[in-house]
Nucleic acid binder design. Structure first.
Lengths: 352, 352
DNA sequence: CCGGAGAATCGAAACGTTTCGATCCGAGTT
DNA sequence: AACTCGGATCGAAACGTTTCGATTCTCCGG
């Protein structure tokens, strides 16, 4: 190959016989440029094989990288295998893309290692943090130190924009629905309580210790309604397999729950499968509720009783938060509505 | 807020009473720095609230952005809802993250619009292109013009590194398996043929026109084995819903197929559900094969007959390609092995 | 015929690093 | 005691843009 370095704006300017600034103005669109000058510059550029202004130089000079960091669960698989999260991400990437912003994936650092990671060094203009814990979120601290505007999904922090849903009220709605059906022994299957989640029955106070925000809020609903779940099973993420495992644990527990409140539809689907494997009929022997409002084709003809949230709207709102922050506006705080959806997975309680 | 601009290295140097270069050396780790100097600089930095070298300045000067672009299907949902792709992405992000590289999501531009998009302007050191078409991939041209090293997944291009699997041989294996079972009327359900895919029966030559590489190769297997599928149904992506829709189309087709070769496990799962809805038993009335080797818990106790590929390994190889390219080495070309997995979704052919 | 407004272009100063060669100093060598 | 060498620090030159305040030129009104 030729050792020749790539052409720069200066080369284009020289070739076209104009000043550097004129070439810059041609590309950036700021300032008045005559049509013939424009074609002349473009001609010179294409002759030289100039591929456009260097993003890095542009970023340094203008202070804008046009990159938004997306801080997710350290294992992308856990974060994105839930279709809801994926739909949100899809909308976010689409919207930000339309605004000329790229999305940089940043796995959230778990251990507060001293080594600076992507979060410390990656170029970005703003960050979106998905699924933050209630306490000790190292990511927020790092972002704060860097002075980057932050949007938090499913959580809040001073100075940060946020997009949330009323997890507690929504879950309480489901619990009351079950209570009205006469259920008293209600189990619950939770999302991870914190980063080191395991699939296991939770002993002791279910709200003790640091908890992921949505997990916390959805558990809180039991307190609000004034009911204590007879079994609490924690999972490692919103996955069918996890739901199956948790379902086995919950349904074979000595307290014999007649209903299971699950913190996601995927988990609920898994619990339904587990029930079937145990020879229990849903909803005859056990009622199951979900959360999110997915369309689980493989459960058909059963439909989950669940709380529906609109993932696309959520994504759009997140993008809007980022936009507002970049424009220097006050950080917005959106709360998304959720809707009760009566399915065929819940029914009147029956002794079993 | 104070209008004071963020501190720079020069500020730190002044505060610590040393030269700018010394501070730089402290942070970059190049060059010898005495321990006491290091602590002195760190003290000054933390006093000033200095958050570390500006990524954009660093990128301009060193020529490295530490960002790798990931070019995917324009709708992230379609690209990532398949667990296999997600697992690959997970491994890629993890490995590159360990190398200090961030992953920037770039939806592939569909229309060759004149407006320069993310692909043209986003800062990156290299790119990974997932699922390229056989012809006219505008993304590759843009990346080529920018002089960025490219790794292609499920495809190849001159000068680019690649990670592929032998789709044709693998699919042929499945077809032969069915032929040995006496199947002659075999339908096939494909991934999108190109970006504007629809869920519909394909009329005419199934290999005509520009095709996504994997779709093409897996269809090619029929030719290799010397069999023409009795129905070809195209889908919009590897989704259960798409499989259900396609299954209905294929199984109610007048040619009454006794087997369906699906280009992904998710599609196969959908076809199985469609068969059940139509009152057909799998594998008694119809055999179904998949592709990928997912663990579809909700199909249990049935297990798909499929070709297994190791997504994590695939991801690791992709990361390795990127690494090699960034190190200036020759572009590697890996072909991943796939393994036949006999499940319970295929059986001897029976008239229906 | 002159002054002034506006359009088009230009020059030069940043932006905040990394990097290369130079400088300084004390320890070891002859 | 002069001489070399390596470790630690420093100065200055890039890196490739954007941006701001000139500068030039043309055209119009008075």
């Amino acid at each position: 190959m030729s050792g020749a370095r790539r052409p720069t704006m200066a080369d284009v300017a020289a070739k076209a016989g104009v000043s550097l600034s004129t070439v810059s103005l041609t590309y950036s669109g700021a300032g008045p440029i005559s049509p013939e000058m424009k074609t002349r510059v473009e001609k010179a550029a294409s002759d030289l094989g100039y591929a456009g202004p260097s993003p890095q130089a542009r970023a340094l000079r203008s202070g804008r990288t046009h990159v938004v960091g997306l801080v997710t669960h350290e294992r992308l698989q856990f974060a994105l295998r839930d279709p809801i999260t994926l739909q949100v991400l899809d909308a976010v990437v689409g919207d930000l893309g339309d605004m000329g912003l790229g999305v940089l994936l940043i796995p959230s650092p778990t251990t507060a290692s001293t080594e600076p990671g992507l979060l410390d060094t990656a170029p970005m203009d703003a960050a979106v943090v998905m699924r933050t814990r209630d306490h000790d979120e190292p990511a927020l601290e790092i972002l704060g130190r860097r002075g980057l505007p932050v949007t938090i999904v499913e959580g809040t922090a001073p100075g940060a924009a946020s997009v949330t849903i009323d997890d507690t009220a929504a879950t309480a709605h489901l619990i009351r629905h079950l209570v009205e059906f006469g259920h008293t022994r209600i189990a619950t299957v939770t999302l991870p309580r914190n980063s080191g989640g395991e699939t296991a029955i939770v002993e002791g106070d279910m709200l003790a210790g640091p908890l992921w925000t949505p997990t916390h809020h959805r558990l809180q609903a039991f307190r609000d309604v004034g009911i204590e779940p007879c079994v609490v099973v924690e999972t490692r993420g919103s996955l069918i397999e996890e739901g199956i495992a948790a379902g086995h644990l919950a349904l074979s527990h000595p307290s014999r729950p007649t209903a299971v409140v699950c913190q996601s539809d995927l988990l609920a689907g898994g619990v339904v499968l587990a029930a079937r494997e145990l020879g229990l009929q849903v909803p005859r022997d056990v009622s199951v509720t979900g959360f999110d409002g997915l369309d689980l084709a493989w459960l058909a003809p059963m439909e989950l009783t669940t709380m529906t949230q609109d993932a696309a709207v959520k994504g759009h709102l997140i993008a809007q938060c980022v936009k507002a922050l970049l424009a220097g506006e006050e950080p917005p705080a959106f709360e998304l509505p959720v809707e009760f959806k009566r399915g065929t997975s819940t029914a009147v309680a029956r002794e079993r």
